[in-house]
């Protein structure tokens, strides 16, 4: 399988604290790679470096064979990379539809247009509605994003990410703070998405991880200590000692 995104020897420290320690990791075409690890292992810092929000101290980020280490987060979006955040990041004062339409707008034509009303542009709205339907949120299109339940806001953030037309999705704990039915809906959604996207998923919900992932990478203290299929990870003694502990999975 071809590698679409790879981290090569990434390093990031804050003072004496090394958060990413010579980390290398490959994301393959159309796979869902889950990165798991205890709190503070440096998972979000990894996503931040992959997405361009943070610059690594050393190492490279390579997208489809091209070094993108110097590209900003906004530039990487235009190369087909989208992300969600651990803490929901949407435009709270905008309607659900506007949230997604603005993401569509980012990929379609110039935004230095000053006079025609954006609200009436069918090209933006139709594409946005299609993405909302994809995440089962089309019925809420006209509601204010801030008024949605937490689970629905998570769905909205996914729709926003999808609207930028990415082939790589970096998802930072999409299930965080969601309950039973909401979480099940999101898991089903990711199950559908992984057919057409290469996904790097950070998640603490082990049931979801083992149900969704093609491969799992285990991260401890800024390093990947093991990578493998869910079965291999489950059987790996180092992983059990470091992370899974006595918990049965």
């Amino acid at each position: 399988m071809s590698v679409v995104l790879s981290a090569q020897g990434l390093r990031k420290s804050y003072g004496a604290l090394t958060v990413t320690d010579n980390l290398s990791l490959d994301l393959h075409q159309d796979e869902l790679l889950a990165v798991i690890g205890p709190n503070g292992a440096g998972k979000t810092t990894l996503i931040n470096q992959l997405s361009g929000q943070l610059r690594p101290d050393a190492g490279r980020v390579v997208l489809a064979g091209r070094d993108i280490s110097d590209q900003s987060m906004a530039q990487r979006v235009h190369l087909g990379m989208a992300r969600t955040f651990q803490i929901t990041s949407i435009l709270p004062g905008f309607s659900v539809l506007e949230n997604v339409a603005l993401a569509v707008q980012a990929r379609s034509g110039s935004s230095f247009r000053f006079f025609r009303a954006a609200a009436g542009q069918r090209r933006l709205n139709d594409a946005a509605m299609a993405h909302l339907a994809e995440v089962d949120l089309d019925a809420d299109a006209q509601r204010r994003a801030a008024d949605l339940s937490h689970g629905k806001q998570r769905q909205l953030e996914l729709a926003i990410a999808l609207a930028t037309d990415p082939h790589i999705l970096l998802l930072d704990e999409p299930l965080a703070g969601t309950g039973g039915a909401e979480a099940a809906r999101l898991v089903a959604l990711m199950q559908r998405l992984k057919a057409r996207h290469s996904i790097l998923l950070i998640e603490h919900d082990m049931r979801a991880v083992f149900a969704l992932a093609n491969r799992i990478a285990v991260m401890v203290y800024g390093q990947i200590i093991a990578t493998g299929t869910p079965d291999e990870i489950r059987a790996n003694p180092r992983v059990r000692a470091a992370y899974l502990g006595q918990e049965s999975v």
Binding site: I90, E98, A101, A106, I160, A161, T164
Partner: peptide
């Protein structure tokens, strides 16, 4: 306009704007 939406979006959440 499209421009106005981007301006308001940056007011609402600059991080999200960069992420799209």
């Amino acid at each position: 306009s499209r421009f106005g939406r981007v301006l308001c979006g940056a007011r609402e959440n600059p991080q999200r704007m960069q992420a799209i």
